[in-house]
Design a binder for these strands. Sequence first.
DNA 1: ACTCGGATTCAACGGACGTTGAGATCGTGG
DNA 2: CCACGATCTCAACGTCCGTTGAATCCGAGT
Lengths: 206, 206
Amino acid sequence: MASTDSPGNGGRRGRRPGDSGTREAILDAARARFSGEGFRGATVRAIAGDAGVDPSLVMHFFGSKQALFVAAMEFPLDPAEIVPRLVGPGVDGLGERLLRFLLGIIDELGEANPMLGLVRSAVTHPDAARMMREFLGEAILDRIAAAIDADRPRLRAELCASQIVGILMARQILALPELAAADRELLVGIYGRTIQRYLTEPLASS
Amino acid sequence: MASTDSPGNGGRRGRRPGDSGTREAILDAARARFSGEGFRGATVRAIAGDAGVDPSLVMHFFGSKQALFVAAMEFPLDPAEIVPRLVGPGVDGLGERLLRFLLGIIDELGEANPMLGLVRSAVTHPDAARMMREFLGEAILDRIAAAIDADRPRLRAELCASQIVGILMARQILALPELAAADRELLVGIYGRTIQRYLTEPLASS
DNA sequence: ACTCGGATTCAACGGACGTTGAGATCGTGG
DNA sequence: CCACGATCTCAACGTCCGTTGAATCCGAGT
């Protein structure tokens, strides 16, 4: 990690001029570390180092590592605005729209992706698993479930979530080679049809 | 975790009679801890405690925490035997067969599931991610890819892997409620059709 | 009967971690 | 121009971790 040590320069104590943006620098470093190494793997000391700052300043700003995690993993997009925009045009082609959007922000956010941080932490840290379950559930799944007109809407939304989390794991974390290299529109087509089926087609097998 | 402390009793030093099964007790405890908390979260001391044994005995048997992890996460079933048995009857209904088998062993293994341990560790620990990628790739995906008669077989196998890992994440780790409670045969039907599509149907969207 | 070597424990090490408390610095409002 | 309070660093704490080294115990081979 490139320790740019832009703020907090010089080893001198005391306040530097202006607003100094140190708080934001710490949040950026925390996002990168938590996303890349999960809650346990990321250390307050490393985050402070990346931000060019003393570890105790992190505590001064955020109180605890846990609180820093919550602040850093806040999702940069508001689901209350995004989900209706995706669902708005109707249920036709919703699968493809959802996937194009998701793969887009995954590629755009790269390694500083709060979803990666949540997944990497949820897997080890029960508190983070609860955070993710609640965020996923209330902010996204229930909204989608409310928008589709079919039996067992919540189960359908969870089916979609299982495939989407799987994409995240396979491409970003396990880095399965052909999947990671595949053309985005190809994946939109393949996975989009799966999601569409989970959302609207009959569930019971023949 | 129920610290049964069956071996190593009494705080007395020296050798206890016979073969003593201590090594196996350590492996069992390691499987449970690694599966439940991942590589970083599981501690040698806790594993030793569960096995009723001094931490240094773990080192004596296995040399290092890393080596213990490798020994404990060895998959209890041999893919070289399982995969052909599943693929054998032909590609028809392969999706359902694969899923029935997978959901079966997931429920059977419960929390002491090496796949869970690998996933929980891969997410944080790059070495474990490599282990899992190689195991998945060589032992399973390539074998499946070799068995199907369609274009881009390896990509198809990775598509299946992405859905299967997603099932593991959603049901066992995130514990999405409706998915965790759903009837097994219902899931076999739903996911089986997805897997079947990834394996045999045309990839390109219309 | 006597050694030999594996099984086992105890005590300790050095390092990393999250967190704390005290103090230094300096822009800003009165 | 002075005191206040926010920003920032330093040094240290207690804890837990993986690992090591030495010592003890005892079954097995000769």
